[in-house]
Amino acid sequence: MRYCLALDLKDDPALIAEYEKYHERIWPEIDASIRESGITNMEIYRVGNRLFMIMETDATFSFDQKAAADAANPKVQEWETLMWHYQQPLPMAKPGEKWMLMEKIFQL
């Protein structure tokens, strides 16, 4: 299955550069938590301060299970807290909502 998600970064070139630097080599525990959840491929693209994530998953993946596993993993929580220093919610996000699932509106 493929999922596409969006999130904004704080519109500050120095913070954006730091965020990208972290993603040149994510922590091994974060890599492991992504793979163990059933995500088989993940890409993040940026334009300006807008991020676009593409996730490819296997049949075992569940957003609810991933969220529960992340909440129970101190290293993931440390990473998420650090990343939130650079990120900000989309204008239409509900309180506490980060990466927002996008709706596919076209396919060729």
Rank of each mutant, 00 (worst) to 15 (best):
Met1Gln: 09
Met1Tyr: 01
Arg2Asp: 06
Arg2Asn: 07
Cys4Gln: 08
Leu9Asn: 08
Asp11Glu: 14
Asp11Lys: 11
Asp12His: 09
Leu15Cys: 10
Ile16Gln: 10
Tyr19Ser: 05
Glu20Val: 13
Glu20Gly: 06
Lys21Val: 00
Tyr22His: 13
Tyr22Leu: 13
Tyr22Cys: 04
Tyr22Asp: 10
Arg25Tyr: 00
Ile26Glu: 03
Pro28Leu: 09
Glu29Leu: 08
Ile30Cys: 05
Asp31Asn: 11
Asp31Val: 07
Ala32Glu: 12
Ala32Leu: 09
Ala32Pro: 03
Ala32Met: 06
Ser33Cys: 10
Arg35Pro: 01
Glu36Phe: 00
Gly38Trp: 01
Met42Pro: 02
Tyr45Pro: 01
Tyr45Gln: 07
Arg46Asn: 07
Val47Trp: 00
Gly48Cys: 07
Leu51Gln: 01
Leu51Val: 10
Leu51Arg: 03
Ile54Pro: 01
Ile54Met: 10
Met55Pro: 02
Thr60Gly: 03
Phe61Tyr: 15
Ser62Tyr: 04
Lys66Leu: 14
Ala67Asn: 13
Ala69Gly: 07
Asp70Trp: 05
Ala71Met: 10
Pro74Thr: 05
Pro74Arg: 02
Pro74Glu: 01
Lys75Phe: 00
Lys75Leu: 11
Val76Gln: 09
Gln77Asn: 15
Glu78Cys: 09
Trp79Phe: 12
Trp79Ile: 06
Glu80Asn: 14
Thr81Met: 06
Leu82Asn: 11
Met83Phe: 07
Tyr86Gln: 04
Tyr86Glu: 05
Gln87Gly: 05
Gln87Val: 07
Gln87Tyr: 03
Gln88Glu: 11
Gln88Ser: 05
Leu90Asp: 04
Met92Thr: 15
Ala93Gln: 06
Glu97Gln: 15
Glu97Tyr: 09
Leu101Lys: 14
Met102Tyr: 01
Met102Ala: 14
Lys104Cys: 08
Ile105Tyr: 11
Ile105Asp: 05
